[in-house]
Each structure stands twice: as structure tokens, then as C-alpha cells.
Design a protein around this nucleic acid. Sequence first.
DNA 1: TATAACGTTGACGTTAACGTAAACTTTGAC
DNA 2: GTCAAAGTTTACGTTAACGTCAACGTTATA
Lengths: 137, 137
Amino acid sequence: MSEHKTYSISQLAAEFGVTTRTIRFYEEKGMLHPERSGQTRIFSNTDRVRLELILRGKRIGMSLEESREIIDMYDPAGGNIEQYRYLLEQIDKREAQLQSQLLDIQDLLGSLSEVRQRTAVALKQALAQQSETSEQE
Amino acid sequence: MSEHKTYSISQLAAEFGVTTRTIRFYEEKGMLHPERSGQTRIFSNTDRVRLELILRGKRIGMSLEESREIIDMYDPAGGNIEQYRYLLEQIDKREAQLQSQLLDIQDLLGSLSEVRQRTAVALKQALAQQSETSEQE
DNA sequence: TATAACGTTGACGTTAACGTAAACTTTGAC
DNA sequence: GTCAAAGTTTACGTTAACGTCAACGTTATA
């Protein structure tokens, strides 16, 4: 008995903190392919993973289209040589973009650290100032 | 003579690869504050830097509002203790979010590497297959 | 002086990514 | 059997982030 766990739409919605509308929207866009039991959608583990990928993509600022492109890389469509070459190209491009995104984030983290330093100092001074004036009373 | 270099709107647009409409839009949203010579906007270096920050924010998936919040951290508004404490809180939150974004990107980079491996192998096999059949002729 | 080139202010249009509401069906619990 | 919970479709609404005219002013230069 292979474990083909399935999920209802509201289960997935709750698990990932999105609305059912969002999930239906992703299906409408062809990014999820739940089966049906009558009208009701039944999501497989494959769909669950795809949903995770979509949401991770969103967190790092990717559009749904970009997420779709990346997800499509996971299970390559055709088996012809040109397609493989093209896919390798696309992978390299994405990788480069993600690397530069890494740099952007690291830069930002760096300057946030500085800002925190400055703010901490300013707070300390403000507190010193406060205790000074309260001694004066 | 302090160097107060200034820029026209199209200079900045060209430098950063955006349209003038975009820059005007950012001003409209209160994120840039160019001076005026008559009607014409004159951008200072401060505005240039802010524009850079906005665009970096965009690249890592931040909305303009989020960028604004971060930029506002750079020059803290008031000097009161509660504001400093609040600011430190915000800094910590942002930092945490950026860290998890780093993880997301690193994960993605990891799986892209795997995909590339698999694709490279598949391509190699396809090429081998091709030379085989061409020998047969 | 005319004619580009660059600038300006409206103002309406567009796309992505859902939100929201209505009207209806299906189903498990009492 | 009814009724609340969860599901469905259809369809219009909304927001962010600009794009795209139109109609106009200013400046350099040929």
C-alpha cells in the first residue's frame, strides 16, 4: 500500500496560510492539478509540493510566471537535445540572478546592522540624558 | 567648493534603466524629493541613493512601502526613547525576514544545481544516442 | 525663427494577484 | 430530515506599480 496522502483545499490553505481562493486561483493558472471527486478538489502530494514552491518563490519576490518556469525545470518536458541545452541556459540565468539577489540581501543586512548600532547608541544617550534630568529635579 | 552633483530625470532614468515615468511616480509617492528649477526637477545625490535603495528593494521582492520603511530607518525621525526602541524592534524583524529569505534562495540554488546535474546527464545520454544512430547509417 | 530634444502636468489604461459576494450543491452530525 | 460546515462556480471589485497618450512649456542650435 503506497501512501498517497491527499488533502482538501482548506487543509492546504490552513497549512500554508493562504486562502482557498488563492489555491483555486493557482489551479486556474494551471499551476496545480488536483483531481476531482465529483466537484470537490483532491490534492495530491505533488500538488502540495508545487504549492510550497510557488509560495517560496513569492517570498523571494518571484512572480507566478517565474515560479512556473522554475517548477517546470524540475520535470523537463521533452527529451530532445536542443531542449536540454536551452534548459541548461535557463538554469544558468536563474542561478546568476539568484546569486545577485543574495548579494543584495547581504548588503542590506550589512547596512541594517550599522543602523542598529547607531540606533542603539542613540538610545543609550537618550536614556543617559533622561536620568541626568531626573537627577536635577 | 563642496561637490553637490545634481542629475536630470533622464540621467537617472538612463543610469538605472527605468523610465522617467517611474521616477515621477516615486516622487508622487513621496519617496524622492527633487528640488525644482522652475518646473524642472533637479535631483541631488541623496535622491540618487534613495532611488538605488528602492530599486534594490524591488530586486529582492520588496514593495515600495517596504522599501520606504527601510529607507526611513536610515535617518530616524524623532529622538525620543520609545521611537528608538520601536525602531530597534523593526530592525530585528526585517533582519529575521531577510535571513529567512537568504535560506529560501540558498535552497533554491541547491535544487537548481541538482536539476542542472540531471539535465547535463540527460543531455549527454541524448548525445550518445544520437552518435549511435548516426553510426548505423 | 523654427524645429528638435527634453521637460512638465493631467488623466485614463493595464496587468498581476488575488478579495469579495452571491447563489448553489454536498455531506456528516444530530 | 434539517441544518451547519465545507465545497463549488461565476463574476465583479481592488490595489500596486507603473504604461501610455495628450497637450503644453523651455531651451539649444542650425
